[in-house]
Amino acid sequence: MKKNISHYLEKKNILFLEASSKKEALLELIGALAQNPNITDKKALEDGIWQREKLMSTGIGLGLAVPHVRIKTVTEPIIAVGVSRKGITDYKSLDDSPVKIIIMIAAGEKQHALYITLLSAVTSILKEIRLREKILSSGSTEEIYVTLTES
């Protein structure tokens, strides 16, 4: 499964977030993803992400959020990671704790099975407290990449 994540995650898509609000944080990650050829329409990605957040927040507690979208304009699944050391307080997580790690997953409309597998893999990795702490204490995106893909 780790192999799977490394297949869809690139170091350049891992960011230390400057943003202090949910909106800014998600926009930063959308901006990063939009740089990739897998994303053919940034606007559609953005709309998809907001639409999903409107239905229910993707903040699943433990300082984690997994915004995700499955839309036509994504050619291959892709992952972006945002780390906010100070935490985003307006994310409205399930446990009301500030969100510190955001993993954004975008997949194509017909990649249902892979999309579900990626979501499941990411959440199960980050439910481990040791790994979450390691990510938050990382000094570089390189370290976060290694933690997520080789831990």
Binding site: I116, S120, T123
Partner: peptide, 24 residues
Amino acid sequence: QEVKHILTTSGLDMLLLAHDIMNP
């Protein structure tokens, strides 16, 4: 078919909505 995929995974109960798994 869509539901079947979810049943074989774990930890997604609070993350997935119908919106996420539905077909267009």
